[in-house]
């Protein structure tokens, strides 16, 4: 409890407090009221960042959850080399996000990257993954999903293995098709686990920063600058604005809190029905 209070609650409260001050050096603070919040709302860059973050989170959560479900089902029904495939799926989770960004930066290089070499070989041209704003967003969503997919899949796999096999066998004996088993038995029974995945993916999506920073640096032209980088840029890059960075952090906290609460509420409502 003491650790939780010291390292989580106190810094969070301190962050909220600092968001009402202006400080360019972290040592002297001037009270500015809600000026930092007003500055963020009136900042066109912040609007662009909000749009980019929303785009990233929506696609990231959708794709990551869908693919994680797919891979969990595939791996669960696999008959051979189960351990190997699970390890391969989980491997990106163990990589440092910074390394992930650097690796994909090389892979996605327009002129000398292996992906474009492959695409060129099949007549797919040389897309500028890191210099075209839309492609940049696609690239960071893809890499974000790639990094966390194994983690989500393993959680869903645990949920799948908790389903009583006799239910599936009974449905099969009653003539249910594979699609019907998945749609009418597996997915409903996995709903609580899926909800956890959606909440985790939403939080991960909003908090994505490290691999994006090394992959695109927030570029091209700010297209992949998400809210955490906005906080980082204002709080730690010269010219430092600790108050503004803290205010952006508070906004991020409120957004994540609202989405998490909404997910829980919708989950409960569905359960009640």
């Amino acid at each position: 409890m003491a650790i939780f209070l010291t390292f989580i609650i106190w810094p969070a409260l301190r962050g909220i407090y600092i968001s009402f001050f202006d400080s360019t050096d972290g040592r002297t603070f001037t009270f500015v009221g809600t000026a930092n919040y007003k500055a963020i709302i009136g900042d066109p860059t912040a609007i662009e960042v909000a749009k980019a973050t929303a785009t990233y989170v929506v696609f990231y959560v959708l794709i990551a959850t869908t693919l994680a479900m797919f891979f969990a089902i595939v791996v669960n029904e696999q008959k051979f080399a189960k351990g190997f495939f699970r390890a391969v799926l989980f491997l990106p989770v163990m990589l440092s996000p910074v390394v992930v960004g650097l690796i994909w930066n090389d892979v996605l290089d327009r002129k000398v990257g292996p992906l474009n070499a492959l695409l060129e070989a099949v007549g797919g041209g040389s897309p500028g993954w890191l210099i075209e704003p839309k492609l940049g967003m696609i690239a960071v969503i893809f890499v974000g999903v790639w990094v966390h997919l194994g983690f989500y899949s393993i959680i869903l796999l645990a949920g799948l293995q908790g389903i009583d096999r006799s239910l599936l066998e009974a449905a099969s004996m009653d003539g249910a098709t594979r699609g019907q088993i998945i749609r009418l038995i597996i997915l409903p029974l996995l709903k609580p686990t899926t909800l956890v995945i959606i909440i985790l993916a939403t939080i991960h999506g909003f908090q994505s920063f490290d691999f994006i920073y090394t992959l695109t640096g927030g570029g091209p032209f700010g297209a992949t600058t998400l809210i955490v980088q906005y906080i980082y840029d204002h709080a730690f890059q010269v010219p430092i604005q600790y108050g503004l960075g803290s205010a952006a952090g508070v906004i991020l906290f409120m957004v994540i809190f609202a989405f998490t609460a909404l997910n829980f509420l919708l989950g409960r409502k569905r359960d009640a029905i």
């Binding site: 890191l130 695109t216 640096g217 927030g218 700010g222």
Partner: peptide, 14 residues
């Protein structure tokens, strides 16, 4: 010149 390196590194030095 290496446009990817310049544009693709956002607002960072490269």
């Amino acid at each position: 010149a290496p446009k990817d390196l310049w544009i693709g590194s956002g607002t960072k030095y490269a």
